[in-house]
């Protein structure tokens, strides 16, 4: 299983991490290390959360172009935030205990993910229907958020704006450790379920025929996706096309659809892109170009590329 390509990819990922930690350090090393290691931890979590959630979502829906974000899941998270600001006011929102707030949101996200997306799973054979359903849901969540943000006063609106855009420079430091626990459990769960995910990729009827408890796994995996989206959105904000990009690249490298491979490759690619991209952009371009924008740009091109290949 450990072939040369995987080792090379892993070494690249580690190299990128080392660069991120050491390039251009001036002044107090200890301070820089502390600051950078917190950021690194957040970036790694986002990388893993985004790639695992996309991969798992694509497996349960048996397709390669849908991602939780395209289906409106991070829009749902933003809607939750906006609703909270609307209900509590900017000050009330800011004084909420971040961990209590985050854990409640995660539970709500997991629940809503099931509630909204389980019915859509019936249409896995009709990809266009799924895609349309997701797009409509996404638009609805975004419109509701913007409707709510029109009703609140400008100061509160600034709070909403702060959470609505991906920002890899200012990570939500309070949440790094609670998220870490979730990520570790989620990753362990995915890894343990890798063979079952392989079977689920064969489609619902075949998977049931091979003895997979579809009812339990479809719910469990959607809950997992909901949690992972909550984690990544809470840490840096919505990154719509990152998942699509890294999973597509991960699959390309893996050359197989075994989850033991695609999982590792997608995570590694995701780490290389996020950590490497952040290093290059902040040191070579002095933060002139936000990483989020660049990722959306490259991700968008990938999306079109995959769509074209899929049509053939």
């Amino acid at each position: 299983m450990l072939d040369r390509k995987m080792i090379l990819t892993a070494i690249t990922a580690i190299g990128v991490i080392v660069l991120f930690m050491t390039v251009n350090i001036r002044g107090n090393w200890q301070f820089a290390m502390e600051l950078r290691s917190m950021r690194l931890l957040a970036l790694l979590q986002v990388a893993i959360a985004v790639s695992l959630s996309t991969l798992v979502f694509q497996t349960i829906t048996s397709n390669r172009i849908l991602t939780p974000s395209l289906m409106g899941m991070d829009a749902l998270y933003i809607l939750l935030q906006t609703t909270l600001v609307f209900a509590l006011g900017g000050l009330g929102y800011a004084t909420l205990d971040p961990i209590v707030k985050f854990s409640t949101e995660t539970i709500v996200m997991a629940g809503l993910a099931c509630l909204l997306f389980l019915p859509l799973l019936r249409f896995t054979n009709a990809l266009v229907l799924m895609l349309l359903g997701g797009v409509v849901l996404g638009v609805m969540f975004r419109s509701l958020s913007s409707f709510l943000s029109r009703l609140i006063d400008p100061n509160d609106f600034a709070v909403v704006q702060g959470v609505s855009y991906a920002d890899f420079n200012t990570v939500n430091a309070d949440l790094i450790f609670p998220c870490l626990i979730l990520i570790v459990f989620a990753a362990l769960f995915c890894w343990r379920a890798r063979h079952i995910l392989d079977v689920i990729l064969l489609g619902k009827p075949t998977a049931i025929g091979l003895g997979v408890n579809w009812r339990i796994y479809s719910v469990a995996l959607l809950v997992l996706v909901g949690i992972l989206v909550a984690v990544s959105t809470a840490l840096v904000g919505p990154v719509t096309l990152l998942g699509l990009l890294v999973v597509a690249l991960g699959r390309e490298l893996a050359k197989t659809s075994k989850h033991s491979h695609t999982m590792i490759y997608s995570c590694l690619v995701s780490i290389i892109l996020l950590v490497g991209g952040q290093t290059i952009l902040s040191h070579l371009f002095a933060n002139a170009l936000p990483l989020g924008v660049l990722i959306e740009f490259v991700g968008g091109i990938t999306f079109i590329f995959i769509l074209f290949r899929w049509r053939q």
Binding site: L201, G203, P205, I208, G209, G211, T256
Partner: peptide, 20 residues
Amino acid sequence: TRTLARRLAIMPQDNVVAGR
């Protein structure tokens, strides 16, 4: 369902195999 999977096998109507 796992117990049943050792008793009977089903080949559903043409479903496309996703993945490589």
